[in-house]
Design a protein around this nucleic acid. Structure first.
Length: 371
DNA sequence: AACTTTTACAACCGCATCATT
DNA sequence: AAATGATGCGGTTGTAAAAGT
């Protein structure tokens, strides 16, 4: 079917609207309601096409539009809805009173998307993607701290474990927190009951718990976290070994924080591993905007994180149990989200978000609406 | 202070869908 | 049923402001 142009564009103004034009449009709509958008510009004395007028009104001039910064609650809602709806901005906007699809889309692209990427979460699938992580940081940690264990052939046995998105997400979160904000890591571990697990299963005898010194730095040993991180490190190693590309040139990773320092072969491997592993909608579990992903169970008694730790042997991950972990455990949704006030800064959000694994589907959200 | 780069967001474009003729 | 028109939607672009050098 043909699609005629919305208007004759000859001689019509484009670009930013002037206050005078806005005034004309507002005045006209207040008096007459929009009616036919195509005829509106002529009737209102505007040298614009109807489409431009409609867009200006719906995205900017409408009186019920809420301007200003997105609240944390709004941000959470956007992420939750996006994990279900994808780029259905209008559907998302319908759940956020006062926000337009355009505004949400812009906010997603300029803020949320970038943050998810930074934390190794694929903003499209909401699944963890190791190739999106700040790998240089991971590698730096690997090279600086674990060089002696890098070539441990037995590590390679765990190759398949790197395909487990839950573990990757957990580890990426921990790594991120460890580097950016150790204090928040402590908070994270407490919230996710890692402490309990650690105390119960591994550190019972030696009282080897995490401590913070006066400068809020972690003191070693933090054996469990280290173990977790070590596992990640050899997963990275294994990922490279899979394609026969051991770090042939370590200078490529000379301690720069750059997304460009990715390992192409790992990237392609991870793409294959994760892209298709999005949880079914009815099992989507929400997570923090920056730290996790929908496939990571909410911390709870049935948490996979918990089970990962509990099922492992006393000192190490049991990769068999990890690999057999369902991609999306139907864990009950935790509703104990903690929100920051609306005035929190981006950095604050980023930092604090990392400690929030608890998301909930708003009761008002009827997923069937979108089906 | 001047210049460059990055960020944020308003606006545009083209396609899809629905309604009307 | 087909053609046409109106509106909605999502991707992309242009540009002003902010940040960095």
């Amino acid at each position: 079917m043909g699609r005629a142009p919305c208007c004759d564009k000859n001689g019509l103004k484009k670009g930013p609207w002037t206050p005078e034009e806005d005034h004309k449009l507002i005045t006209y709509i207040q008096l007459h309601s929009p009616g036919n958008w195509r005829n509106l510009p002529k009737n209102a004395g505007l040298q614009r096409c109807g489409k431009s007028c409609r867009l200006r009104w719906t995205n900017y001039l409408r009186p019920d539009i809420k301007r200003g910064r997105f609240s944390f609650e709004e941000e959470e809602t956007i992420i939750q809805l996006h994990s279900i709806l994808g780029n259905k901005w209008s559907a998302i906007a319908a759940r956020l009173p006062g926000r337009t699809d355009n505004e949400i889309k812009n906010y997603w692209n300029t803020h949320i998307r970038k943050r998810l990427l930074r934390n190794g979460i694929d903003p499209v699938t909401h699944a963890p993607r190791l190739d999106l992580l700040d790998l240089s940081s991971i590698l730096r940690s690997t090279l600086c701290n674990q060089s002696s264990s890098l070539l441990n052939v037995s590590n390679l046995l765990g190759t398949q474990a790197l395909l487990n998105p839950e573990l990757l997400s957990i580890v990426s979160t921990l790594l991120s927190l460890k580097q950016e904000n150790p204090e928040t890591l402590l908070q994270y571990l407490q919230q996710n009951q890692l402490f309990n697990s650690i105390n119960t299963h591994q550190l019972q005898n030696n009282q080897n718990i995490m401590q913070l010194n006066d400068h809020h730095q972690f003191q070693t040993p933090v054996s469990d976290v280290s173990s977790l991180l070590n596992q990640t490190q050899f997963m990275m190693q294994a990922a490279n070994n899979v394609e026969g590309e051991l770090f042939s040139d370590m200078t490529d990773f000379n301690c720069q924080n750059s997304q460009e320092n990715l390992i192409p072969s790992t990237s392609s491997l991870m793409n294959q591993a994760f892209v298709s592993e999005q949880a079914p909608i009815n099992q989507v579990l929400y997570s923090s905007p920056s730290s996790s992903n929908p496939t990571v169970p909410v911390p709870s008694e049935s948490s996979s994180l918990q089970s990962v730790l509990n099922n492992g042997n006393q000192n190490n991950f049991n990769f068999d149990s990890v690999m057999s972990t369902p991609l999306s455990s139907p864990a009950p949704l935790n509703s104990s989200s903690t929100y920051l006030n609306n005035s929190s800064t981006e950095d604050e959000r980023e930092s604090y978000c990392s400690s929030f694994l608890k998301f909930e589907i708003p009761e008002s959200l009827d997923i069937s609406d979108f089906m």
